[in-house]
């Protein structure tokens, strides 16, 4: 067991973990952050995407010990710290508005990857959006409405001063 201190969605956690514990399993099983899910075991699907120190990573391909001393943001930490009535992040809102999800299993990872894309490129073209989320698989939507959602969020974010995770 190794001791780690991690900030997740704005709160500090101190835990003992086995070195082999994946970050996603730590989040889900030790912290109860079940909003982040596991969809594959080869780092292809992106369903487990979270932000590590502000950058999108696949939490199934990061060890929990590697998050020691770092800051993790999950889908649950986006909307004003996760309070039920908190305002949605513009990307969350856009996914809703543009029908960018159906079963919703890929959605947390898709949203976290999209935010990362927009942080880096605030006004991406359709091609840049498609390539920017190539690491996230969705089986329901055919991606078209996800692309629309990212476009809409880009518009809203560029019109506002901040609000990004």
């Amino acid at each position: 067991m190794t001791s780690i201190n991690v900030r997740v969605d704005g709160a500090s956690y101190s835990d003992d973990v086995e070195p082999r514990t994946l970050l996603v399993h730590y989040l889900r099983e030790q912290l109860g952050k079940v909003g982040t899910v596991v969809g594959c075991d080869t780092s292809n699907c992106g369903a487990c995407t979270v932000h590590l120190d502000g950058q999108a990573v696949k939490s199934c391909t990061v060890l929990a010990v590697q998050a020691d001393g770092r800051e993790v943001t999950t889908i649950e930490g986006l909307a004003g710290g996760g309070a039920p009535d908190a305002a949605l992040h513009p990307v969350q809102k856009a996914f809703h508005e543009m029908h960018g999800l159906q079963c919703g299993f890929c959605t947390p990872g898709m949203i976290m990857a999209s935010i990362d894309l927009l942080n880096e490129n605030p006004s991406p073209s359709e091609t840049e959006i498609r390539e920017g989320i190539e690491g996230n698989l969705c089986r329901c939507t055919g991606y078209q409405n996800i692309v629309r959602a990212v476009q809409q969020a880009a518009g809203e974010l560029s019109g506002s001063a901040g609000g990004q995770a």
Partner: peptide, 9 residues
Amino acid sequence: VADRQVRRR
């Protein structure tokens, strides 16, 4: 190489 998240790590 791979995708955005993988390139981060």
